[in-house]
């Protein structure tokens, strides 16, 4: 079974972003970029399936600018066998990404597609669900456990009230939650080897997909700044403040 993994290049999760002075967007100049944390978990899951002998090949795919090849090389260093870069400098929204991934699914015929549940830049949480709808494949979102069993996969999902387990027919789409696994770090020899692994470069036009969306970004602002308050010296003072100043008790 082939496993397809979608990875996105995003701002490093430790970086505190700044909004541009003209409010047109956030300022990403000279900001550290990385693979979206949920995508790292997706790659790790695919590689583990290969190590267990369930997956035969792991293919990583990204949609983004030239620099996004860094994240594909990371995926290759972590154990993916080959990579597909769909190159575009346009802001590719979830729907366009899902359409492109649907084309790749059609071409590659994977048994399982693993995506992150959410990209930490746009915080959209929708690409995997859209891909499932477009391909007509079943979906297991927010997965904290994935168990392939013959022509089925059982997915345990993190839902608001607790955990839910569903069974899906394969091929299927899975999106990862944080507790699915703990991703490994790439070792230096693997990083060297990754440079030689195959990486195909395509464009959205190759797939006949229009990247432009009907949603326009009018403005980006900083949220209302929250000011730190005071330190209290004791539990008594805390209770007094909450009762008489904040009036929340």
């Amino acid at each position: 079974m082939k496993v397809l993994v979608a990875v996105k290049r995003v701002i490093d999760y430790n970086v505190k972003i700044r909004v541009k002075a003209d409010h047109s967007d956030v300022d990403l100049t000279n900001v550290k970029m990385a693979m979206n944390p949920f995508c790292e978990i997706a790659v790790e899951e695919a590689v583990r399936l290969k190590e267990k002998g369930i997956a035969t090949e792991v293919v990583a795919v990204t949609v983004g600018p030239k620099a996004a090849q860094e994240q594909l090389r990371t995926a290759l260093a972590l154990g993916a066998d080959r990579a597909i870069h769909i190159e575009t400098d346009e802001r590719a929204e979830s729907l366009a990404v899902a359409k492109l991934l649907a084309k790749v699914v059609e071409e590659e015929q994977p048994g399982l597609v693993v995506l992150g549940k959410q990209a930490i830049d746009t915080d959209n949480n929708q690409t995997g669900q859209m891909l499932a709808a477009l391909t007509g494949l079943p979906q297991g979102t927010f997965a904290s456990e994935v168990a392939v069993d013959g022509d089925k996969v059982n997915v345990t999902r993190e839902i608001d009230g607790g955990l839910q387990t569903i069974a899906l027919t394969l091929p299927a789409i899975v999106t990862t939650d944080l507790r699915l696994n703990e991703p490994r770090y790439a070792k230096l020899p693997d990083i060297m080897k990754a440079k030689k692994k195959p990486l195909d470069v395509k464009t959205p036009a190759d797939y006949g997909v229009e990247v432009a969306s009907k949603v326009s970004l009018l403005k980006v602002e900083s949220p209302a700044e929250r000011k730190g308050g005071v330190k209290v010296a004791s539990v008594d003072e805390l209770i007094d403040k909450l009762k008489n100043e904040a009036k929340v008790l």
Binding site: D123, N125, Q139
Partner: peptide
């Protein structure tokens, strides 16, 4: 934007060929 809303609504958006605005 509950886990159900997030799970289901993007499917409608994709099948209607429109974007979804989340959260």
């Amino acid at each position: 934007a509950s886990t159900t809303g997030k799970n289901v609504l993007p499917r409608l958006a994709a099948l209607k060929d429109v974007s979804q605005l989340s959260d």
